[in-house]
Structure formats: structure tokens, C-alpha cells
Simulated scan of single mutants.
Amino acid sequence: MDDTPRPIVLARALRLTAGRTTVFAGLDVDLPVSGYGAVVGPSGAGKSTLLLSLTGRMRGVTGTLLVSGLDAVRHPGPVRQVTSVARVADLIGPEPTLTVAECITERSLLDAGAPRQRHAAFASAAELMGLDVDPDALYGDLPPVDQTRAAVALACVRPADLVVLDDLDHDATLDEQAALWRGIAALAASGTSVIAATTERAAVPAGATIIDLS
């Protein structure tokens, strides 16, 4: 009997080009269910683009990419339904001028979910991430590390097999990054796999699957 964990993400020879520029190529990824990974590389290495690619939100990807058993290259639509983006660069993320409660409502409307269930899902993910925040606080007024925690929790208001997060290390000390990774590990252990991008390899824990774009 094969006891090898089933992958939530399986990529082989993944490649993306934009015009004459190769964003990434020859990329292999194996992330087990209830696992968590780190996309590591300097600014401009293609980390944000890779996160969007892994969730079926980037055109032009070639190679093999299975997410939750779904073909993200040929049929990205179903993959978008089982994945969630917490934050990616300046493209996707909570609105700074909204309160945390309003962010939950906005995310619930975007995901066509029942507000009561979504608030419970947010609270559960927030607890795992170590977030304790006043719902009436403006998202933009939260400390950067709590903005990151809240962004991840907001991405969980709709059940997702995989959540992706960009810039985990944004304005975060090494100790704060370590705390964020502990929260991500706890979230993954609860059944929601997570892939986060960072430039700070030193803070990535041993349990993470490394996706190296350096």
C-alpha cells in the first residue's frame, strides 16, 4: 500500500513567458495535502506571478499543474473555485479604508457566502494565525504583521483547499515572520494548505516545502 501523501499541488516543468521574457521555467512543485510551502526569491523573481499561476489566475502557463487533482493549465476555472488569494502585490488584498468587519462582509459578498458562516470561518482562521483584533479597527491601521494575519484569515471565509499569500516578510521582523509561519503551519494542519512568498529564506521553517526562484 502506497502511504505517500496525496499532493495538493503537483507541478512538472511549469513555465510562463511574457513576450520575450521567461518569468519562470522548468519548475517542479510537490506540496502534500495539509502542507505549506514557501516561494523564495528576490524582488522581481516572479513570486507574485507564480502564486497567481498556482491558483489558476494567470494565463499562458504551460507544463503540468494539478491543484487538488484539477488541471490548472487546461481548466483553470474549477481551480479558482478551490483556491483563495490572501494578498498578491498591489493586485489583490483587503481594502485599507474598511474595518475588519467590513472586510469580512466584502469578502463574503465576493465569494457569495452566508455572512454568519463566513464570520465563523474568519474567527477560526484568525485564531490559528494568532490574530486578536477589534472588528471595528480599520484594516489599514493594523500593524503590518496583523494585516498579514488578517489577509490570510479573510482568504478563509470561503472554504479553500489552498490559500496563497504574497510578501509574508513585508515590514515584519524575523521573530514576527517566525510567528506568521507558525500560524500558517497551524492553518495547514487544520486542512487548508498554504503557499506564501518571501524574500527572507532564513525565517522559513524546516517543515515548509521550498519553491526556489532565486
Rank of each mutant, 00 (worst) to 15 (best):
D2A: 09
T4S: 15
I8S: 07
A11H: 02
L14V: 09
L14S: 03
G19I: 13
R20K: 14
R20F: 05
A25D: 15
D28L: 06
V29F: 03
D30K: 04
L31F: 14
P32M: 10
S34F: 10
A38Y: 07
A38E: 09
V40G: 01
G41D: 05
G46E: 12
K47H: 11
K47C: 08
T49L: 13
L52S: 10
S53I: 06
G56D: 06
R57I: 07
M58V: 11
V61Q: 07
V61F: 10
G63V: 04
G63Y: 05
L65H: 08
L66D: 11
V67G: 03
V67D: 05
V67N: 04
L70A: 04
V73S: 14
H75I: 14
H75L: 12
H75A: 12
H75M: 12
R80G: 14
Q81Y: 15
V82K: 01
V82R: 03
S84A: 11
A89K: 09
A89H: 10
E95W: 13
E95M: 13
P96F: 14
P96R: 15
T97A: 12
A101I: 00
A101C: 06
I104L: 12
T105V: 10
T105R: 12
E106W: 15
E106C: 06
E106F: 15
R107H: 12
R107P: 00
R107S: 08
D111M: 10
G113T: 13
A114E: 15
R116I: 07
R118D: 14
A121V: 02
A121S: 11
A121G: 07
S124I: 05
E127R: 15
E127M: 13
L128Y: 00
L128C: 01
M129N: 11
M129S: 13
L131Y: 02
L131G: 05
D134R: 13
D136Q: 14
L138E: 11
L138I: 08
G140A: 14
G140V: 01
D141L: 08
P143G: 14
Q147D: 09
T148K: 05
R149D: 01
A150W: 11
A151Y: 03
V152W: 10
A153N: 07
L154R: 04
R158S: 03
P159W: 10
A160Y: 06
D161C: 12
V164I: 09
D166R: 04
D167H: 07
D167V: 04
D167Y: 08
L168W: 02
L168F: 05
D169S: 02
D169G: 00
T173Q: 00
D175P: 01
A178F: 00
G183M: 01
I184S: 01
A185L: 10
A186Y: 07
L187N: 01
L187S: 03
A188C: 09
G191C: 07
V194T: 08
I195M: 12
I195H: 06
A196L: 08
E200C: 08
A202L: 15
V204I: 10
A206I: 06
G207F: 04
A208V: 00
A208R: 01
T209W: 02
T209F: 04
D212T: 03
